[in-house]
Simulated assay, not measured.
Amino acid sequence: MERIRHAVLVQTDRNSAIVLSRDESFTVATDGSFDLSRAWALLKQGASSGEVAVTIGCDVGAIESFVAALRDVGLWIEVGADREVVSVVSALETLNAAVTMWKRHSVIHPIFRLLEDEQRRSSLLISLMVEVCHFTAQTPRIGCVAAAYASSSDGRRRLLLHAADEQDHYIDLTRAVGKALSVDGRDILSSQPAIATTLICSYLEHLARNHVPAYAACLQFLEADPGVAEKAHDAFTSLATKNDVPVAVAQAFARHSREDMLAGHASVGPAVIAAEFPSGIPAVAMDEMLNAVHTLKHSFDSLYDALSTEWADPAQSYLLRGAVRADMI
């Protein structure tokens, strides 16, 4: 059976779009007789060219031509072949391609356009940094949970080393953000994280307890690629300067990224997966890993959505949300 390859559609206008597929990108276009995004959505659901044409009210030939164009660039593929076990090498190549695709999609979220446009948005940037502090403080504990449930000694060892490396990183981050807000760094962690941050941490802990390879796949999404980490200092400094946030705060986040790179954190996830599945990866487990990363990516989208909304409405905006006390109700 032939289906559209899983990819990210970034529409540029009604009739054309950029498609992020694995570690490549393509431009696709229609003949103007149908809405590209509707046709794409129906094809992703498994509809035939005829069904798509009837649903959106266009000539079936236009859809068939569109499908042929997708096939020419490798976006229309054969699926459903026997694949009970996937080799480790093939699985890690697929995972890396998917992670690359979803990372590229993540960084074009509207929150980053807000942070890079002509307006100064210090509250939005600091709010994002506060959530990173909350998240970073939780990751070592979750990593230790994953280590406890790992089935291989090598996977367990790598997860424990990763957790140990991350153990104190939140201290430098919270101290820097605290100075920017004129509060003690401990006040950052005593504030209430955004609901989306709490859900992200809960989801990762669920994976750590129930599917260590899926947790390891998510680590690959969370850790910066070496090339990106090398550029972190300039990127963070640019964002901070543009949004009137002290450069010292940006430098703390850049140090964290660089320390992770030097410690080889980008390779931890794939190494754990290989340790957990030395003889090949069951296709079902491979699908579960990919879906875990996809869910995590959209969870971060939800966090960015929430922060962007709160920043846009001053009545809802907050930087540090205090805990509720019973004697104040």
Rank of each mutant, 00 (worst) to 15 (best):
S182D: 15
A271K: 10
S267W: 00
Q192Y: 04
E205V: 03
V28W: 04
V54Y: 07
A254E: 07
V268K: 05
S182F: 10
R156F: 07
T139F: 15
H211I: 02
D154E: 14
I18W: 04
T12V: 14
Q192C: 10
A164I: 09
F221W: 14
A312R: 14
G322K: 12
G80S: 09
G61E: 07
K44I: 07
R14S: 13
D187E: 14
V183A: 06
N15G: 15
P246F: 03
E276H: 03
V99H: 06
W40C: 01
M328I: 04
L9R: 10
A53W: 01
H265A: 01
F26D: 06
A248E: 15
V67D: 00
S87V: 04
Y318C: 06
L199S: 11
C133S: 08
T139P: 00
A266G: 00
D59G: 03
S48G: 12
D165V: 13
S317Q: 15
V284N: 03
I63Y: 04
R158I: 04
A97Y: 02
E64C: 02
S279L: 09
I171Y: 07
A146H: 11
G32H: 07
A146N: 12
K231P: 00
E259H: 11
M286S: 10
R156S: 15
E230T: 05
A323F: 09
A39L: 05
V247S: 06
S37Y: 09
A81K: 12
V107C: 02
K297D: 12
A68S: 13
V79F: 03
A163M: 11
A147E: 12
A275T: 02
I329L: 14
S267T: 09
